[in-house]
Design a protein around this nucleic acid. Sequence first.
DNA 1: CGGATACCTGCACAGCTGTGCAGCTATGCA
DNA 2: TGCATAGCTGCACAGCTGTGCAGGTATCCG
Lengths: 129, 129
Amino acid sequence: MAVPPWQNPAMHLVPAERADHRTIDGHRVCDAVAAIGDMAEVRVRAQRYSLLADPGRLALLLALRRVGPMAVTDLAVATGMNGAAVSQAMRLLRAAGVVAGEKAGRVVRYRLVDAAVGELVDGCAGVTE
Amino acid sequence: MAVPPWQNPAMHLVPAERADHRTIDGHRVCDAVAAIGDMAEVRVRAQRYSLLADPGRLALLLALRRVGPMAVTDLAVATGMNGAAVSQAMRLLRAAGVVAGEKAGRVVRYRLVDAAVGELVDGCAGVTE
DNA sequence: CGGATACCTGCACAGCTGTGCAGCTATGCA
DNA sequence: TGCATAGCTGCACAGCTGTGCAGGTATCCG
């Protein structure tokens, strides 16, 4: 391989447009780039976390995770939120593919459909420390 | 059961100011209240998730989690962020008690100090689905 | 000593986000 | 048929948040 040193397998991970930046520990920079992985995937993960970053939504998801499908009105009473606020949150979560609503008469019951978010909500709960 | 119905272990959980609201499935409301638990703790958890909700911060934490302490400049090169942006993110994370900075000469190396966030960043990474 | 480097801070600005209010549709019940 | 309930939506507003720029301090090297 006739490539220059900054292109060896351990170094080529840092994008070309940043290859000339000064670094303190060059190898750590490469390790970090490898650790971060695809930036698009990081953005997806960050967006998923942002769904849980609101107290209202987190409370709603906690409820859905533990007691199963629930109607909007019940969720509003349980969380102390406004009915419209619950609808708004559900619209957002449904758009993100986290919950799904099933209409029974004039009542709509929402349930968790995203396993990953479910794990996050329920599984990592013990890490509250 | 000598206690009135609204005080039995399964029902008294819904706050008095919402006790007169109409509900679809009353018992589910109570289960939900129990599932949500202390609202203050929910807020704390939501705030913790909000720290990971930014792609920049998440990338920084991924790097710190995997390669250990790193300098601001190296983090900037690895993530493609501005140096000032990294400083800003670190200020926020340090204020939240997630990272700590150790000064070595004119270089400041940050490291992860919050185990819970570390688990979140690293452990739940496989759930990317 | 003087310049360059590493980092921090303050400020102003744009963008997103949560919230409340009002109005609307649809369903169930008398 | 008429009314109350369950839920959705649009809009306007305040608040938070990320970002860039400019300037400041501390450290190292020649």
